[in-house]
Amino acid sequence: MKRDVAEAINKLMLEYGAKLDESVRIVMESCSPSEFESYRAAVGQIMGTMLVDVMNPIYREHPDLKPPQLDE
């Protein structure tokens, strides 16, 4: 993948991940525990797929784009 495309996709994936994290917080504060658990599980699947299928291939090709927090 061309570097400029990898940079743009990486930026978007990080933004979407942050928005998904925020959505989990909103649901946690506003919904029942069972609704929260279901929602959090669904978001976890989405974020896992984003990482494994979209972001990790980018980081293999362009390791310098990988944010340090993903090494934890």
Results as ranks from 00 to 15, higher is better:
residue 1 M to K: 11
residue 1 M to P: 02
residue 1 M to S: 13
residue 2 K to Q: 14
residue 3 R to F: 13
residue 5 V to H: 11
residue 6 A to D: 02
residue 6 A to Y: 13
residue 7 E to V: 11
residue 7 E to K: 11
residue 8 A to I: 06
residue 8 A to Q: 08
residue 8 A to G: 02
residue 8 A to C: 02
residue 9 I to P: 03
residue 9 I to S: 04
residue 9 I to D: 05
residue 9 I to M: 08
residue 10 N to L: 03
residue 10 N to T: 14
residue 10 N to F: 03
residue 11 K to I: 02
residue 11 K to E: 09
residue 12 L to V: 05
residue 12 L to P: 00
residue 14 L to K: 01
residue 15 E to L: 11
residue 15 E to M: 08
residue 15 E to G: 00
residue 15 E to Q: 12
residue 15 E to C: 01
residue 15 E to Y: 07
residue 15 E to K: 09
residue 15 E to T: 10
residue 16 Y to T: 04
residue 16 Y to D: 02
residue 16 Y to A: 01
residue 17 G to K: 05
residue 18 A to K: 13
residue 18 A to T: 08
residue 18 A to L: 07
residue 19 K to H: 15
residue 19 K to A: 13
residue 20 L to E: 09
residue 20 L to Y: 10
residue 20 L to Q: 05
residue 20 L to W: 04
residue 21 D to H: 14
residue 23 S to E: 06
residue 24 V to H: 04
residue 24 V to C: 08
residue 24 V to Y: 07
residue 25 R to Q: 06
residue 25 R to P: 00
residue 26 I to R: 04
residue 27 V to H: 03
residue 28 M to F: 06
residue 30 S to M: 08
residue 30 S to D: 07
residue 30 S to Y: 03
residue 31 C to R: 06
residue 32 S to M: 06
residue 32 S to V: 03
residue 32 S to N: 02
residue 32 S to P: 00
residue 33 P to H: 05
residue 34 S to Q: 12
residue 34 S to H: 06
residue 34 S to I: 08
residue 34 S to V: 07
residue 34 S to M: 09
residue 35 E to I: 06
residue 36 F to H: 09
residue 36 F to N: 06
residue 36 F to G: 02
residue 37 E to N: 07
residue 37 E to F: 09
residue 38 S to F: 11
residue 39 Y to V: 09
residue 39 Y to S: 03
residue 40 R to W: 10
residue 40 R to A: 13
residue 41 A to G: 14
residue 42 A to M: 14
residue 42 A to I: 08
residue 42 A to F: 14
residue 43 V to R: 01
residue 43 V to A: 04
residue 45 Q to P: 05
residue 45 Q to R: 15
residue 45 Q to I: 07
residue 47 M to F: 00
residue 47 M to G: 00
residue 48 G to Q: 14
residue 48 G to F: 11
residue 48 G to D: 10
residue 49 T to N: 06
residue 49 T to D: 07
residue 49 T to K: 12
residue 49 T to E: 12
residue 49 T to P: 01
residue 50 M to C: 04
residue 50 M to H: 03
residue 50 M to A: 02
residue 51 L to P: 01
residue 51 L to S: 03
residue 51 L to R: 12
residue 52 V to W: 08
residue 52 V to S: 14
residue 52 V to R: 15
residue 53 D to Q: 15
residue 53 D to M: 15
residue 54 V to D: 01
residue 54 V to S: 00
residue 55 M to L: 12
residue 55 M to V: 00
residue 55 M to C: 00
residue 55 M to Q: 10
residue 56 N to I: 11
residue 56 N to W: 08
residue 58 I to W: 03
residue 60 R to A: 08
residue 61 E to D: 15
residue 61 E to H: 04
residue 61 E to W: 13
residue 62 H to T: 03
residue 62 H to I: 03
residue 63 P to V: 02
residue 63 P to W: 15
residue 63 P to S: 00
residue 64 D to N: 12
residue 65 L to V: 09
residue 65 L to Q: 08
residue 65 L to F: 14
residue 66 K to E: 05
residue 68 P to W: 09
residue 68 P to V: 13
residue 68 P to R: 12
residue 68 P to K: 14
residue 68 P to C: 08
residue 70 L to K: 09
residue 70 L to Q: 10
residue 70 L to M: 15
residue 70 L to P: 01
residue 70 L to C: 00
residue 71 D to L: 14
residue 71 D to S: 12
residue 71 D to I: 05
residue 72 E to P: 01
